[in-house]
Design a protein around this nucleic acid. Structure first.
Lengths: 114, 114
DNA sequence: GTATTTAGTTTATAATACAAACTAGTTACT
DNA sequence: AGTAACTAGTTTGTATTATAAACTAAATAC
């Protein structure tokens, strides 16, 4: 069993820490504002913006632009079913990797103890 | 509670999938040869070499060069206590993040149900 | 009417993952 | 003996990308 090749198949769009935090936050809220999300994650605006663009391009999030009282721009972000599924799969994959790594480790330590 | 900023503190040297697979493999074997490790991880030689250099510079692995029958070069790699500790901490951090995210998620869903 | 703030986007830079090209030595072939 | 091809890596170049700095557009303050 070769668990290690599995790691290279991790969804890199989600694996990146900034995006992992965005996706995790969005999974918890049904909808979030740009600035709220920024505060939660501690990212700069520029950073937030570009990461969100990537997530949007992959259809992991839905971005809506509206105006508060027809004046102040407000960007709201939601996770899509696709994104939610991808996040779930990501954690499943992490769990799977850890499990089979542990398993392989046990076998190997019998072969090469100490 | 703001779990999401924690993610940006993940040890990036370990987080990178290629290196995570190297470190996981090394944690299982007490010592591994370059080529064995390459086969396990599915990385190219160039890739292996540069990732190992980075891990060595951080003192996460110990690289030893010897010659088989005084002829064929053989590189052996071991994880160091520092590296082993870093890997353990990495998984701990992942667990912690997941846990507090789940917690935060629960709270948030009470505030914004549906 | 100018200055500052708000809510983002775009651009530029610095880091880095990756593979291709290279090195140094070994074995195979004729 | 001499050349070709293989082995075990390393170094170099390229392409991607994470990040922050600079910019935009509109609103409010003075």
């Amino acid at each position: 069993m070769m668990p290690f090749k599995e790691m290279s198949r991790l969804d890199k769009l989600i694996h990146e820490p900034a995006r992992l935090s965005i996706m995790s936050a969005l999974e918890a809220c049904s909808m979030a504002e740009f600035l709220f999300l920024q505060e939660l994650t501690g990212l700069t605006k520029g950073n937030m913006s570009s990461h969100l663009s990537k997530l949007e391009k992959a259809n992991y999030v839905l971005i809506g632009k509206s105006f508060l009282r027809k004046k102040i721009p407000q960007t709201t972000i939601q996770i899509t079913p696709t994104g939610s599924h991808a996040l779930t799969e990501y954690w499943k994959q992490i769990d799977h990797i850890r499990e089979i790594t542990k398993q392989w480790s046990k076998e190997t330590n019998i072969a090469f103890p100490g």
